Computed example of a mutant assay.
Amino acid sequence: MTGPVRTVTVVGAGTIGLAWTTLFLAHGLDVRLSTGRADAERAAREAVELFAPSLPVPPAHPDRLLDRLLDRLTIEPDVAKAVAGTDLVQENVREQLSLKQELFAEVERAAPDHVLLLSSSSSLSADALGATMDDPSGLLVGHPFNPAHLMPLVELVPGTRTRPDAVERAAAFYRSLGKVPVALRRPMAGTPANRLQSALFREAVHLVAEGYLTAEEADAVVTGSIGLRWAAVGPFQAFHLGGGPGGLRRMLGAVGDRMAAEWEHLGTPGLTDDIVRTLAEQTERAYGQGADAYRRLAAARDVRQGAVLAALRAGEDTGRADP
């Protein structure tokens, strides 16, 4: 990638791929969407209609973005044609290693030498993804947090053969979209956000499976307490503030032993058929299911999430450390 990114190829038209497509179009990029979906054009239009109203970039009105979609979006099922002459590839096909390896090997043969290759994978390493490539130095994981069009975080996970400048260029690209890229120091199993989310979800599953709470009540506990707290400050800063002027050192000195002892009582539930059935039935009863419910819930989520992000942006200068 020797100059500014103007053309992006999105491979895969699931929820993540369509969210990326909408965001890229909103930022004036030419987007080639490579997918085997027969309904790709309709799916892209519906995604823009659903996701555009919550985008923080102008023009956010879906009608105007639909016009831009028609002007800037190309549907190209042939991967080789879709990546020829492109500046950047964002891959979003299903989490199957052999499929992704075959895809990146094909992309390497057809794409320009300078292209930056980014995978939205949440569980596969860049080394594994590029194992069949001759030169995977431009490949790394660029994992968004769902919903990808709205949430700021993108986790960058390089492989052992990824060039440092590829990570820097990926970070610069995502920043140009208003994202907050965070690069790992070295590869790991999974990604930080998903590991943290999984730890909380595991305990939520335990509480519901053991009958302490319903799924809806567990959601209310999170959104009414730590969810609000963590929207403003992360766990370390929260406990740093909890220690008053003495900070985290004082906080852990006072309650650290008790906190560590409580870790012994955290649950380790399995996702058995019975537990999955219980979780699914309670969640469906609380929120509904099917395409109509998804669109309604996703739209409401994005409105609320967008309002939180707007409030955080409005207050972003407050509380910054003095130079």
Rank of each mutant, 00 (worst) to 15 (best):
residue 2 T to N: 12
residue 9 T to Q: 05
residue 32 R to Q: 02
residue 34 S to K: 07
residue 34 S to H: 05
residue 36 G to F: 05
residue 36 G to W: 03
residue 36 G to N: 13
residue 41 E to L: 08
residue 47 A to E: 07
residue 48 V to R: 04
residue 52 A to V: 05
residue 57 V to Y: 12
residue 58 P to E: 15
residue 58 P to H: 12
residue 67 D to V: 10
residue 69 L to M: 14
residue 69 L to V: 04
residue 71 D to L: 13
residue 78 D to P: 05
residue 80 A to Y: 04
residue 94 R to C: 07
residue 94 R to E: 13
residue 102 E to K: 14
residue 102 E to N: 13
residue 103 L to G: 04
residue 104 F to S: 01
residue 105 A to E: 10
residue 112 P to F: 05
residue 112 P to I: 10
residue 116 L to A: 02
residue 119 S to I: 07
residue 120 S to C: 03
residue 125 S to L: 11
residue 125 S to K: 04
residue 129 L to C: 01
residue 133 M to P: 01
residue 134 D to S: 13
residue 134 D to C: 00
residue 139 L to F: 01
residue 142 G to C: 06
residue 146 N to Y: 03
residue 151 M to L: 14
residue 153 L to E: 07
residue 161 R to L: 02
residue 167 V to N: 02
residue 170 A to C: 04
residue 172 A to N: 11
residue 176 S to R: 12
residue 178 G to E: 12
residue 180 V to P: 01
residue 180 V to K: 15
residue 184 L to C: 04
residue 185 R to Y: 00
residue 188 M to G: 03
residue 188 M to N: 01
residue 188 M to L: 12
residue 191 T to P: 00
residue 192 P to E: 05
residue 193 A to V: 13
residue 200 L to F: 03
residue 201 F to D: 09
residue 207 L to N: 06
residue 212 Y to L: 13
residue 214 T to L: 03
residue 215 A to M: 09
residue 223 T to Q: 14
residue 226 I to D: 10
residue 230 W to C: 05
residue 231 A to I: 10
residue 231 A to D: 09
residue 234 G to F: 11
residue 235 P to A: 13
residue 237 Q to L: 15
residue 241 L to E: 13
residue 244 G to I: 13
residue 248 L to W: 14
residue 249 R to I: 10
residue 252 L to N: 06
residue 254 A to R: 12
residue 256 G to Y: 02
residue 260 A to C: 07
residue 262 E to Q: 11
residue 262 E to N: 11
residue 268 T to H: 12
residue 268 T to V: 10
residue 270 G to N: 10
residue 275 I to C: 05
residue 278 T to C: 10
residue 280 A to H: 10
residue 283 T to A: 15
residue 287 Y to M: 14
residue 290 G to L: 11
residue 292 D to A: 15
residue 296 R to V: 02
residue 299 A to F: 02
residue 300 A to F: 01
residue 300 A to P: 02
residue 305 Q to G: 04
residue 305 Q to L: 15
residue 311 A to M: 12
residue 316 E to M: 14
residue 317 D to N: 15
residue 317 D to T: 14
residue 321 A to M: 14
